[in-house]
Computed example of a mutant assay.
Amino acid sequence: MLRVRDTVTTTINMVHYQQTNFMGRLHGGDMLKFLADSGMLASMRVAKGFTVLASLDQVLFKKGGRLGDIIEVEAKVLYVGKSSMEVEMSARRGEEIIVTATGTYVKVDQEFRPVEIDEKVIPETREEQVKVEEAMKRREARLEKLANRNSMRECSADPTNFLRYRISNSLFVGPGMTYDGRVASAGMLLKAMDDLGGTLALRFNGIENYSPDSDGVVTVAVSDIFFYSPIRLGDVVEMNAGLTYVGKTSADILINVNRLDPKSGGCSHVTTAFFTYVRIDPQGNKKEMPEYVPATEQERELWLNSLRRRQRPL
Rank of each mutant, 00 (worst) to 15 (best):
M1I: 05
R5D: 07
T9Q: 09
T10V: 15
I12N: 09
V15H: 06
T20I: 10
G24C: 07
R25L: 14
R25T: 15
S38F: 04
M40R: 12
M44H: 00
A54N: 01
A54R: 00
D57Y: 02
I70T: 14
I70G: 01
V73K: 06
K82H: 08
S84L: 01
S84N: 04
M85T: 04
S90D: 05
V99L: 07
T104H: 03
Y105Q: 00
Y105N: 01
Y105L: 07
Q110F: 01
Q110I: 02
E111C: 00
R113Y: 07
I117W: 00
D118Y: 03
V121W: 02
P123K: 10
T125A: 08
R126N: 13
R126C: 06
E128K: 00
V130N: 01
K131W: 04
E134P: 03
M136D: 00
R138N: 05
R139P: 03
R139M: 02
E144N: 11
C155K: 10
P159A: 05
F162T: 15
R166A: 12
L171T: 09
G174P: 00
D180K: 04
R182N: 10
A184V: 07
S185L: 07
G187Q: 14
M188Q: 08
M188F: 08
L189A: 03
L190I: 12
K191I: 12
G198L: 09
L200V: 10
L202K: 12
R203I: 11
F204S: 07
I207C: 04
I207K: 02
I207H: 05
E208N: 12
N209I: 15
D213I: 14
V217L: 04
V218T: 12
T219R: 05
V220C: 08
V222H: 07
D224Q: 14
F226A: 07
V237D: 07
L243E: 08
T244Y: 04
T244M: 03
S250E: 08
I253S: 05
L254P: 01
R259H: 09
P262C: 09
K263V: 15
K263N: 11
G266L: 04
S268D: 14
S268L: 08
V270N: 02
T276C: 02
Q283I: 01
K286I: 10
P290Q: 05
V293E: 12
V293C: 02
V293G: 01
A295E: 15
A295D: 15
L302G: 02
L302I: 04
S306I: 08
R309V: 06
R310L: 14
R310N: 07
L314M: 14
